[in-house]
Nucleic acid binder design. Structure first.
Lengths: 178, 178
DNA sequence: TGTGACATGTAAGCAGTTACATGATTTG
DNA sequence: CAAATCATGTAACTGCTTACATGTCACA
């Protein structure tokens, strides 16, 4: 549902092709969502089926034809309805926590290794997010236009999550190492 | 995969029925995983198919018969293999972040409401986790037996995540309210 | 000559949710 | 008498991943 609505919001801002929407996802993927082109095409087809978007075939020279999708009135209505509904908080189901939980069977030394490897990945991700912040959001949040504030907040959540995770991991490794 | 392995670890510790495994999940669900009985039964059937667990039908008086599942040698090997493989960090796909990102189309006032509602849920969850901590883990982590340390660490991650989320939400609401 | 960008899809499968279904015993 | 607990499952569906598949053009 959220993916559908996210696509709807993207084509509302600017009519787009599936390809362009996928690129958009890749660009913000790092800090709040991820979707493959297969998913995007499937959802676009479903949205068109339900009349929430319509598309025009556009022929291009020297490039494949493309389908430019735009939101419909029904699409706007569906989005507004979804937006008003409260969301359940998402569950976690983190494979690493399974490894922590089953650490005695797996071997505590192996667990420590797993934690280290994960820490390296989270450090990379944090560095990436911090680079984005430095490059694209150097000004005070209060001075940003609304749309930029909103994207910035999703970035902030990514930063907060990574920092919290790293703190937890350091504390955990210290405890396990004794 | 993780669910399969989690089930394997549970029956390794103590041969169990699907029902008991589901109860076990419910007990730890709050802080690191969740699984319905349907999922558990399906995975148990698959594990038995692959020879990673075997089960015995046990007749009971005044209760339905039960299938007690135990891990096999192949099961232990499969678990060890899985445990050694590094895990990718899980992606998030949080519907609330979609609402933040699409806040201009949805309406910032509506977004603030959504954030408030989510905050209430996260506060509840944090309170629940803190209660568990007070009740079951009052001692110093270093003094706990290994198995308890491991469970405690998954609880700590839940606590850290909720606290980080709440901090982010407060900051976000403040920014959006101007 | 090969790789990367542009552009769109199918097919199979895994993970998880919701709803449906049964039936005995224990507790309030 | 009703609800909760014990105990097991099927069926349909949603969401997402992985692998397969096609074809052009630009650039190095």
């Amino acid at each position: 549902m959220s993916l559908r609505m996210l696509i709807l919001a993207i084509v509302e801002a600017k009519p787009s092709t599936g390809y362009a929407i996928t690129k958009e996802f890749d660009a913000v993927a790092g800090f709040f969502w991820r979707a493959s082109h297969q998913q995007v095409y499937r959802e676009l087809a479903a949205l068109a089926d339900e009349g929430l978007v319509r598309f025009k075939d556009v022929a291009q020279e020297g490039r494949p034809d493309k389908k430019v999708h735009a939101i419909t009135v029904a699409g706007r209505r569906a989005f507004a309805e979804w937006y008003a509904q409260p969301q359940d908080i998402p569950r976690l189901n983190d494979p690493l926590m399974v490894k922590v939980f089953t650490g005695e069977l797996g071997g505590v030394d192996n667990l420590i290794e797993q934690l280290s490897a994960a820490r390296a990945q989270h450090l990379d991700k944090l560095a990436m997010l911090e680079a984005i912040q430095r490059e694209h959001y150097p000004e005070a949040p209060a001075d940003m236009p609304r749309w930029k504030q909103l994207v910035y907040l999703t970035l902030c959540w990514g930063l907060a999550r990574e920092r919290a995770w790293l703190q937890w991991a350091e504390q955990s490794e210290a405890l396990l190492r004794g």
